[in-house]
Design a protein around this nucleic acid. Structure first.
Lengths: 201, 201
DNA sequence: AAAAAAAGTGAACATTAATTCACAAAATGA
DNA sequence: TCATTTTGTGAATTAATGTTCACTTTTTTT
């Protein structure tokens, strides 16, 4: 009496779900969240918009799953490296390089972790601003290298790393929850120490 | 014949413009771009939505100016530090600490530089994901410190810095423009070197 | 004080995109 | 094959916001 899904049907459903996730992932990787409307995902997956909602309760939950899956995969790779039998700094370098290599390799979700928000115009301004910050640090670095105080290094990359490091440390680890003065001072010192060590000072 | 604005009027207009910019800035600082609708800015500035458009051609241009002003101010401070007469690594540390200190101090635009996009739900997932990456690096760090290979340090902060550093370096400096293999390899190596030096390896 | 110009208003409009839903197509069991 | 259930559809609905504009108020000039 009751309707039972055949194995074939079951498979097709799972297939559709995978196709939706894959299409969504590709759209974000290619054009960022802004390009990833539900209708676009549907088209890319060869389905109709309504069908998306048979598989996911909302756009938000769909993309939460997209992110989660991508990260799980990434974490698995990094974890493997972290468990190797080698000096800590070597494993750390290998993990970083591994991530960056894959991100540079091709269509990737790097954007999703950085995020491009709001308006393209405003976003462009945001990028310019970060670049400006980077330029300040780059200037210090080149001067330090010229004078022989700092070891030779890729100043563009280092400057970007510095900006990324302290901004992430500001909103990343525990977020911008209010901290007491003691904690704040410690955090400032930690970040400062990290950045100066990083440039070989 | 022609209408001439009195000095008082001129001043009031400039005042309104400033109030709009200030209100917009505060809204972004407090609640991110998501909270900063034109209507909200108008209310916060004590004006009507229509009036906003007498001062700014569009929401985007308003916020571009908000960002630009905030950054100009910040850059000025950093530049002053960068020009000091001191070792490069000291100036670098001072500049980083200066930025972070101000960002932690109170209502700030730190978010605007990191950006919170799309949905709160998806954004929450994004934060969790970055945290996960951080945890991998944190694990390596704590192990390295335990074994005496790495110097003692704030592992939470360092892990966040590492994640921030390589993500920023990926999309920050020149953006994700396609690079040739040689450049990619160099970038990977630069980032790897930066991160390993930073943890004292 | 009256006329002219500018500034301010906020409801109405336009746009964009997520979500729904009445219906069509396909699958299942009898 | 027929009745039933599930799945698929995409146009219509909803919701949130940026933007406009006919109108009011204020300011300036004569």
């Amino acid at each position: 009496m009751a309707y039972r899904r055949s194995a074939l049907m079951e498979e097709r459903l799972a297939d559709n779900r995978d196709r939706i996730l894959l299409a969504a992932r590709k759209l974000v990787a290619d054009g960022g969240f802004r390009e990833a409307q539900v209708a676009a995902v549907a088209t890319a997956a060869g389905l109709s918009t309504g069908t998306i909602y048979r598989y996911f309760p909302s756009k938000a939950e769909l993309f939460v799953e997209v992110l989660t899956l991508a990260v799980e995969q990434e974490i698995q790779i990094l974890d493997e490296i972290a468990r190797r039998d080698a000096p800590a700094s070597e494993r750390l370098g290998a993990a970083v390089a591994s991530f960056v290599r894959r991100a540079l390799a091709g269509p990737n979700l790097a954007y999703a972790f950085i995020a491009e928000p709001v308006d393209p115009e405003v976003d462009a301004a945001r990028i310019r601003c970060r670049k400006q910050f980077g330029d300040v640090f780059k200037a210090i670095l080149t001067a330090g290298i010229d004078s022989g105080e700092l070891p030779a290094q890729d100043c563009d990359a280092a400057a970007a790393c510095i900006v990324g490091a302290f901004t992430e440390a500001l909103v990343g680890p525990i977020g911008p929850t209010t901290r007491n003065t003691r904690d704040k001072a410690r955090l400032i010192e930690s970040i400062r120490a990290f950045c100066t060590r990083a440039v070989g000072g």
